[in-house]
């Protein structure tokens, strides 16, 4: 019983792990370069949760100093993840830009087709 309880209590971790693994799976398994980027974003998102979910305290309020509130949620993770999201967006943008250029140069964004012609540099 205690095991199930602990599993349920840590449900946020399960979501994280699910997102992380499915993201990685897409990156590894999909040949389409855009889909790979989607997977990458999913993977990054799971990490945002690692920061944000422990920062939230049940019943806590935003950290506004007031006598009425005594329990605050930690604001720092949110700030950090805001930065991480910006980084993630930049990565995605750059990745998509590269895919556009690859499409222009090769006429395809499927890895199978690209590497089939010995384009891996050898």
């Amino acid at each position: 019983m205690a095991v199930i309880e602990s599993i349920i209590q840590h449900y946020n971790h399960w979501i994280m792990i699910f997102l992380m693994v499915s993201g990685l799976y897409i990156v590894v398994n999909r040949g389409n370069m855009v889909k790979k980027l989607v997977g990458l974003s999913l993977f990054q998102t799971s990490v945002y949760l690692i920061y944000i979910t422990p920062g939230k305290i049940l019943g806590g309020t935003p950290p506004i100093l007031d006598d009425a509130f005594t329990v605050y949620s930690n604001p720092l993770p949110h700030v950090l993840i805001l930065t991480a999201i910006v980084v993630g967006v930049a990565t995605l943008a750059l990745g998509l830009a590269l895919v556009v250029r690859i499409n222009e140069a090769y006429g395809s964004i499927e890895e199978d087709e690209l590497f089939a012609n010995g384009e891996d540099g050898t």
């Binding site: 990156v27 590269l98 690859i102």
Partner: peptide
């Protein structure tokens, strides 16, 4: 070069994300 850059972007981002996940655990 485009393909190389794309490959590096995927691998590099995975690496950096692993890193930041580790830092997140440390922080918590």
């Amino acid at each position: 070069a485009l393909l190389a850059s794309y490959q590096y972007l995927i691998m590099g981002t995975i690496g950096a994300t692993f890193f930041v996940a580790g830092v997140g655990l440390l922080y918590s």
